[in-house]
């Protein structure tokens, strides 16, 4: 009797001490990582308020007194340079990532839903085949895609970047797992009995239940397309089709010929992360909820 209570009490003591230790350790680690991740962004923010000359003449992480007018100058210079091509790049990225993620989410969720809810011969084979697509890095596919698109004359077009972007094996996987656990068969049966056809059932019943997963798929896909650099690099030559990542990379590689571009690359990089921040802040509630729900079930 006494032995267990002893154990219990020592455990209780330990668990009192541990939280303080582990909490401060956790805080410390989180603090270090937060700094680690935020310092580059801080540097980017500070640097985008500097003139060309101030890069080398002022401390890297401290604002200069004329930061605000410089920032305004840099921004207006950025959007004016080369007939405003930067704005075009941002809009291209929004289009590739926004439309690509939307369409990709629809396709992946329909596919995942079908795999979860319809029994048919070869279902597991199809699913495993799609799943193996998760393992193939997108960069490994870029060159074969280029050669295929060359055959059909679609390189250096909007479609060359858009079409490969709407495919998301991971989205299919997530949608299947989520549909299997969150869409009850009874509900679908009820819908059928009420005379709803399969497509309508999917869009009116299943998608609502799957909403957290859909948001997750959308965000993953949006970020993946926004950050996809290699595919546009290989596919595109026309600067009016570039996404912002490729445009900034091109500018950065031409700083030697035109040092003025250095300012524009920095302020452009700063501007280009803003849409991502907006997407995260507005959708992150769904994202975390969706991930947690999916993992528990």
């Amino acid at each position: 009797m006494s032995a267990p209570s002893l154990t219990r009490s020592s455990k209780a003591k330990g668990s009192q001490r541990e939280p303080i230790l582990s909490r401060s350790a956790a805080m410390l680690i989180m603090g270090v990582f937060t700094l680690y991740f935020l310092i580059p962004i801080w540097w980017l923010l500070v640097s985008s308020t500097k003139t060309q000359g101030q890069f080398t003449t002022t401390p890297a992480l401290i604002f200069t007194p004329d930061a605000i007018p410089n920032f305004i100058d840099n921004i207006s210079g950025l959007f004016a340079y080369n007939d405003g091509v930067f704005l075009k790049w941002i809009l291209n990225s929004v289009l590739y990532a926004g439309a690509g993620a939307l369409l990709g989410t629809v396709i992946a969720s329909m596919c995942g839903y079908a795999l979860a809810k319809y029994g048919f011969r070869g279902r597991e084979a199809v699913f495993n085949l799609v799943l193996s697509g998760v393992l193939v890095p997108a960069t490994a596919l870029a060159l074969p895609l280029f050669l295929i698109f060359s055959q059909v004359g679609l390189t250096n077009t909007f479609w060359a970047v858009f079409l490969p972007s709407i495919v998301s094996p991971f989205g299919v996987y997530l949608a299947r797992i989520y549909a299997a656990s969150s869409v009850p068969d009874e509900l679908l049966e009820a819908a059928r009995l009420d005379g709803s056809n399969e497509v309508r059932t999917f869009f009116t019943v299943a998608t609502r239940l799957m909403a957290p997963a859909l948001v997750t798929i959308f965000l993953f896909q949006f970020v993946a397309i926004w950050n996809n650099f290699f595919l546009p690099l290989i596919m595109l030559r026309d600067p009016s089709l570039f996404p912002v990542t490729l445009g900034l990379y091109s500018w950065n590689s031409a700083i030697g010929q035109n040092p003025e571009l250095r300012s524009f690359v920095i302020i452009g990089a700063f501007v280009s992360i803003i849409p991502l921040i907006i997407a995260f802040l507005s959708l992150q509630r769904f994202w975390s909820g969706g991930l947690a729900a999916g993992s528990i079930k």
């Binding site: 690099l233 290989i234 030559r237 490729l246 091109s250 590689s253 031409a254």
Partner: peptide, 13 residues
């Protein structure tokens, strides 16, 4: 047509 400088990708392209 344009792209990054040669060794940064355009030669491979």
């Amino acid at each position: 047509q344009t792209g990054p400088n040669g060794n940064s990708g355009t030669y491979q392209n």
